[in-house]
């Protein structure tokens, strides 16, 4: 299964970044082969709409699920429309640990927005 995690740098040793729309990198991973590729978040400095932009970006990567910390109302509406499943990770730990927990079905699935959007 192809999934994406929000991370702080372009490495498998990166720290998990709990912000969906404002994370530094998206790490796309195949959970069977553990092959990965990191993409810079194009919307990290967007003045607004970072969540909807991020949702469209990862939809283009044809992922089935996304693991992040929280999803705002606009981001979750867009991810729902794209048919991308949302999972929330609240613990620290390496990217490999988080993927292991995901494979074991231990991560919480999110169906409603878990955070209010941020605007400035």
């Amino acid at each position: 299964m192809k999934i994406v995690l929000t991370v702080s740098s372009s490495s498998i040793d990166a720290e998990f970044d709990p912000r969906f729309g404002r994370c530094a990198y998206f790490l796309v991973m195949d959970t069977e082969t553990m092959k990965w590729e990191a993409f810079q978040n194009p919307g990290i400095n967007a003045s607004g709409g970072a969540g909807t932009q991020a949702a469209q970006f990862i939809a283009q990567k044809k992922v089935a699920a996304v693991i992040s910390g929280d999803f705002g109302p606009n981001a979750s509406a867009a991810l729902n429309a794209a048919g991308i499943l949302m999972y929330r990770n609240k613990d620290s730990g390496s990217i490999q640990d988080i993927v292991k927990r995901f494979n074991a079905g231990e991560l919480e699935k999110v169906d409603v927005p878990s955070a209010s959007g941020s605007h400035h």
């Binding site: 919307g43 003045s47 949702a55 469209q56 429309a81």
Partner: peptide
């Protein structure tokens, strides 16, 4: 410019 429209699975979402 404001990412107020998303096109996903050929469906247009307006925010």
């Amino acid at each position: 410019e404001y990412h107020a429209i998303a096109v996903l699975n050929n469906k247009v979402l307006v925010f």
